[in-house]
Design a protein around this nucleic acid. Sequence first.
DNA 1: ACTGCTTCCGAAAACGATTACGATCGTATC
DNA 2: GATACGATCGTAATCGTTTTCGGAAGCAGT
Lengths: 338, 338
Amino acid sequence: MTGIRQLADYLDISIGTVSRALNGKADVNAETRRRVLEAAEKLGYVPNQSGRSLRKGSTGVVGFMMQTGPEITSQGDAFFMSVFDGVQTVLSRHKLDLVALLCSSNEDPYAYLQRTVARGFADAIILSATRRNDARFELLHRHDIPFISLGRSLTDVGQPWIDLDFEGMAEVAIKRLVKAGHRDIGIIWPHGDLNLGYLFAERCREVLAEHGLALREDHIFRAKPSEAGGYAVAHEIASRSPRPSAIVLVNEILVTGLYKGLEDAGVKPGKDIAIIGRYSPQTQFLSPALTCFTLSLRDLGISLAEHLLSIMPAYQSHYVGQTPRVIWPMTLIEGTSG
Amino acid sequence: MTGIRQLADYLDISIGTVSRALNGKADVNAETRRRVLEAAEKLGYVPNQSGRSLRKGSTGVVGFMMQTGPEITSQGDAFFMSVFDGVQTVLSRHKLDLVALLCSSNEDPYAYLQRTVARGFADAIILSATRRNDARFELLHRHDIPFISLGRSLTDVGQPWIDLDFEGMAEVAIKRLVKAGHRDIGIIWPHGDLNLGYLFAERCREVLAEHGLALREDHIFRAKPSEAGGYAVAHEIASRSPRPSAIVLVNEILVTGLYKGLEDAGVKPGKDIAIIGRYSPQTQFLSPALTCFTLSLRDLGISLAEHLLSIMPAYQSHYVGQTPRVIWPMTLIEGTSG
DNA sequence: ACTGCTTCCGAAAACGATTACGATCGTATC
DNA sequence: GATACGATCGTAATCGTTTTCGGAAGCAGT
């Protein structure tokens, strides 16, 4: 492994000069810098991460925390992969690297985060799957780690967040269904304590009320955020009497199972029951094509990264004055399901 | 932040003793160790990662390299999350952490890997999406980094790998279809240079030959590994004349789009054309349910981690004598599609 | 009392980078 | 010609750990 010492020996100059040359400091001769850069390239020198971050007190990596396991996350891989891509395009401009901090399903997320934070693994953190009350916010705030969350929470420590506009989605979806003549609209509320469920349900209730309609308690269906969860809840929906004439749901993974479950129960989606949900790469290939809300995940990632940078002391000069909180709009794709 | 120095001062002993006590070295008094542990707990001491790994030359993290972006990975949704979960259950027993090394879609994977390796980011690496010829293998081998790949490659530097049994899958699928009377079977070969495509196609050809059948060149369909890719290829399949009476495919993401595409073209899956593919959480909720091959992704992850440990000098004593290469069997789920 | 052996702990040297500081040299200023 | 100053570079301290080495103390055997 070639370190800075080998590089210095090779060039017959001191390691201090090498370091300054590589880090773009002013007090180094242009010719010397050129030679250093050239030699570094030639010998394939890359600064050792541990040495550098020990000295600098920062690591140059941003962590995106997510939970592993089959049924935990409310989003699919494709979701995160696209967001990551956006995040990285911004971070790479500042020579920051993104890594996914993977919290095992049998480890407590709070303890996991505590551990990685104390270890000094990342300079900044992006949180996802925010819960109604999320202690991780306080933890990061206490340790003074810059972070942003993809998702709101009741827990507020003044950090920036970006969240999808579930309330706007609720509004548009409900209005659309009411306009189409639906009077009994049900919703699917994903299991767990994710905040988005509350936001969504509450707004649905409000909008219905504005139209003089009620959200029946027995038409609020709970489901695990998975294909199987969708299948299971479909039977509940089908067998409820009275059965809602339309369903709105926030989780894009459910819908495959939901369709099949309804069909198996003799209720044809889009015909016997209207469905409005969230876009995923599959939804347009279901029959009938799902009427759903979509967004550019890559742009979401870009925004996430930019706002995160804006609160990182070493980088904030680049992005001053941006809004710290964003409710990300979604656009409707008209399918034939509702 | 409380470091080892604060801890030592607090206890009025030397930092060397503190370190030895915490690391379970033998030459430290039991009572002293107890006090150290207690104080560490009380003060919330966690060793600084940079300092530790600088000294030890190892980081305690295992990296799982993957590429971000919407259409890059050949695997879908829950695939990686489940594998990760398995990997972690093993690694956590050895106090190793798993992070996903995210290579941006607009960065060269080789360059990315080179950078992270030279930086000394991870002690060991898990590679996925292995290509027919994969230079990353040589890179890691040259740097003497322990690694394992999820997937074979023609490039062989003696590293362990685990790969799904695509050949076995080809065999079972083809035989099943032939037995059902199919004489003209087509396959879908995912775009890109992933090795699995070659393995699969080759074996299909062989098995067909054993039954006196040929794999027609114009019945080898190329498709992007995405839902949209499946939709696009469906039209090719439907319009080919003669049209194959059955299709086998290795990629689980394609199938949603494939179904829809075929239907739109008036070819009913499972009726007009038989389909056999790979399991994903969605496949059982499609109509007709996909006949497909499945496996325990969590177990796969466990095996991946165990074999990786077996070649890591610091851990190998735990797992000696295991096979370095595994072809992972898949089991057939009989759906109604073929 | 001396030696030998444990048991325990402190001192100090690494690990690889960054950076404050000082040294050197040449040049400009008076 | 003395002084000041800018440009450039080397020296050494530093970050927080781990680990080697040796020393001190205690004990047993002679």
